[in-house]
């Protein structure tokens, strides 16, 4: 009990004390423990090594491990903050924290900017947005002519790229999403409010004395 993780939990590289994680995030200790139940299930779905690899992440997302998806890859890379090719429990909780309904709006804006800045240059460039649109069309089997794609890009950059330099910087992005709040909808997961109800088994595996914290 208390703050010393059991041998079972030490099998999880990157396992962190739920009390510490709760103090750094919008989650309560119980919610962090419920997230551990979800983490255990995802991280053992292909290789039971206590870490989530890309295949396991895609399997959890699509229920199909063969589906390659630009956006799922991008989300995985942003969760994998230490760039180890795997997500440990600490990474998982801290990244999901951004999606909590109570997380600061600024964190959501930052995360979404990084998500769309595919090559990490600090700008969302037109060629990146085009690449994402083409990936979406491929995924959804939606048919749009190249001319329509260019029209969509023209319209988007006319609205978002205020200084018209052909790329969207962080400030332009923050202003653009404040005028189009629906763009941040994907950055909030209402599920995170009910995580202890979704994974009630955390109660039986809790290692914290007072789980009501």
């Amino acid at each position: 009990m208390g703050c010393f993780p059991s041998r079972a939990r030490r099998q999880y590289p990157g396992y962190e004390d739920p009390v510490v994680l709760a103090s750094q995030t919008a989650f309560s200790v119980s919610e962090v423990e419920a997230l551990f139940e979800l983490f255990k299930s995802i991280s053992s779905s292909v290789v039971d090594d206590g870490l989530i690899n890309k295949e396991e992440f895609q399997l959890a997302l699509f229920k199909n491990r063969k589906k390659e998806n630009l956006f799922a890859n991008r989300i995985f890379d942003l969760f994998d903050v230490k760039q180890k090719g795997v997500i440990d429990f600490g990474d998982f909780v801290r990244a999901l924290n951004v999606f909590h309904p109570n997380a600061p709006q600024e964190d959501k804006v930052d995360f979404s900017f990084k998500l769309y800045d595919l090559d990490g240059t600090g700008f969302i460039e037109r060629k990146e947005v085009k690449q994402m649109l083409i990936a979406l069309l491929y995924e959804s089997e939606m048919r749009l002519s190249d001319e329509t794609v260019e029209l969509i890009l023209d319209k988007t950059f006319l609205e978002a790229d205020v200084n018209q330099d052909g790329k969207i910087d962080k400030t332009e992005w923050a202003n653009f999403v404040s005028r189009n709040p629906s763009l941040l909808k994907i950055m909030t997961l209402p599920y995170l409010r009910d995580i202890t109800t979704t994974f009630p088994s955390f109660v039986f595996n809790s290692e914290v004395d007072d789980i009501a914290t």
Binding site: A60, N69, F71, I75, L115, A135, E139, I152, S182, L189
Partner: peptide, 26 residues
């Protein structure tokens, strides 16, 4: 709205790969 009237990010945000809600579906 018709796709041509939507901005690119509205379209992109409909990707299944960006819908993390499915992680919580058992």
């Amino acid at each position: 709205a018709a796709p041509a009237l939507m901005n690119a990010f509205e379209l992109i945000s409909t990707s299944q790969g960006l819908n993390l809600g499915t992680l919580f579906e058992k």
